[in-house]
Design a protein around this nucleic acid. Structure first.
Lengths: 331, 331
DNA sequence: AAAAATAAAGAAACCGTTTTCCAATGGGCT
DNA sequence: AGCCCATTGGAAAACGGTTTCTTTATTTTT
């Protein structure tokens, strides 16, 4: 491995001079700059990142934490977009990121998880899909030992920011659009995610506001974000209701399939905008989120925190639309 | 930040002794070991990984390279499983991994890519979905500047191993099973991936072997792994053929949808075993691959290379089965 | 022309570990 | 008692950079 000493020797200067050239110090003559650059070029010198981290005392290594406890099938699409957005920014900012899945930490205590991150020189976390049940991670956020950015949450503190869409408005918009497209609606089934939590609360409030405005009967059930459960719930209530609003596309698909099997037509809307929606053969309204963008925004928020600013909650745009097979198949 | 010096001072020993305790050297008395461990505990000491990397001269930082140039929609599921498998092993082996997507390197030359990896102290690469067109990465493999493991390839050299399933046998098995389940087959449409390449070649050979054994007419078309193209091809040949064998599930789905629209029934089989297959409502035969396992195997092969052994091509098991909606929905 | 200011380059310390080598202690042996 | 060896702990060098401080050479000022 070629070190800075080799370069210094070859260029006939001190290694401190080489370092200065490489880090764009001002007090360097054009002459020596050229000499050093030539030597670097000829030797193919690549600085050792471990040594660099050690001597500058800043690491800013970022852990990407993906909670998969609550996530069913087909969220891979979403997670992948999260990751791609994050990796893109990591490269742009020259940050090192390490990815973790919640499944790796099941057996570990809060202290162990925290130490584990520290042992990897991680001082920042970006957290995706955090389940309410994940007390250990909430404790990590609370203790403020790391800079954290939560995706799809509203939690903030001095060292924690959150990014999300406006879940209230989005749920309101998509449900309203769906109702507007259909004749008469007097009983709506709302299949929420898990009870409690920021997202569920916001979305539920939106549906309740619509109920108050339009005076339909509202039945709320918790579907756990699973297709299977949404299917069962829909089967149970299908005959009574005349519209289904779902808190996720997966559940909307479950609802639609259940209805199809019963030979019933009821308007259904989803939430997320995943491509699988195209495969139901029925164009449903949904809230299309740009997951990659949310993830990139999370990175930017992290930078803000590292610059010493206090945590905040930021909103990113969304879009209400239908996803149909024709759109999905077109690469 | 608490360093080894703080621990040494607190325990009343030299820092070299602390290091020895932490790294399980044998020549340490129970007495001092306890003293040191107590100090470590009390101070909450976490070793600095940069310093550790610098001092031991081994990094073994692993780059995960995912080629997305050739991959269409819905391969997220596969890539996610690759990543989860890899991250799991990374934790087990205490390796640092950095993930890259081919899209990040489009503008870069071979030399720049190589330097980029080196600048991140990467000395190993695990490469997924490598497209034949990606000459730059093939050059990296060829130059043997990094230890490489290719997933779904057969390329090997002194510093390169490959892991894959037996594509020939798998394609043979799934096609044979599909043919056996149906009455009379005299003209088969085979929708291959891209022309050339190891996988395509192996699979094509398998279909040709079947043709020779069963004397049907074989039409081969290149579908580019895209649902759209598979659809078009199927539409074109549907009336002439009476079975479709596809080199990927995505293409099989395209074929089935095309046939459904034309109100035709033809047996179709796919390849990969992704869950989306369940959504066609038609139980197709496919080759179920364990992507996470392939990825974990790739890590093990990397270890072998690092131990100085020469590259090799290893096979992992597969399974021929049907994926139907009931299986997919059951969480 | 001498003194002071400035520019450029080098020497050395430092970052937090590991690892090699050396010193001290104590026990067993003759 | 004297010697040797085994055991254990410590001192110091090394890893490859950055940064501070010092030195040298050059220019400006008086």
């Amino acid at each position: 491995m070629i070190s800075i000493n080799d370069v210094a020797k070859k260029a006939g200067v001190a290694k401190s001079t080489v370092s200065k050239v490489l880090n764009n110090y001002s007090m360097i003559s054009e002459d020596t700059r050229l000499k050093v650059e030539k030597a670097v070029e000829e030797l193919g010198y690549i600085p050792n990142s471990a040594a660099k981290s050690l001597s500058k005392k800043e690491f800013n290594r970022i852990g990407l934490f993906i909670d998969i406890s609550c996530s069913n099938q087909f969220v891979d699409e979403i997670n992948m977009q999260y990751l791609m957005g994050a990796f893109e920014k990591a490269k742009e900012y020259h940050n090192e990121v390490i990815t973790f899945f919640s499944s790796q930490f099941e057996e570990m205590s809060y202290r162990e998880i925290s130490d584990f991150f520290k042992s990897q020189s991680i001082n920042c976390l970006i957290i995706y899909n955090l389940s309410l049940e994940n007390k250990k991670i909430y404790k990590i956020i609370e203790k403020q030992e790391f800079f954290c950015v939560l995706v799809d949450s509203s939690v903030t503190n001095k060292k924690t920011s959150s990014v999300s869409i406006d879940h209230f408005q989005a749920q309101y918009d998509v449900a309203k659009k769906t109702f507007d497209e259909n004749y008469y609606i007097n009983h709506v089934l709302y299949i929420a995610g898990g009870p409690g939590g920021y997202i569920t609360g916001q979305r539920l409030d939106a549906v309740k506001k619509l109920r108050d405005e339009r005076c339909f009967k509202l039945t709320v059930q918790y579907g756990d974000f699973s297709e299977y459960k949404a299917r069962k719930i829909t089967q149970k209530y299908a005959s009574q209701i005349n519209a289904v609003v779902c808190a996720s596309d997966i559940m909307a698909i479950g609802a639609v399939f259940a209805l199809t099997e019963m030979d019933l037509f009821r308007p259904v809307c989803g939430f997320d905008g995943i491509r699988l929606m195209g495969y139901t053969q029925i164009a449903m309204n949904t809230v299309k989120q740009d997951f990659s963008r949310k993830s990139r925004q999370a990175f930017d928020e992290l930078k803000r925190l590292l610059d010493g600013e206090t945590g905040r909650h930021v909103l990113v745009p969304y879009e209400v639309c239908k996803i149909n097979y024709a759109d999905v198949i077109q690469t």
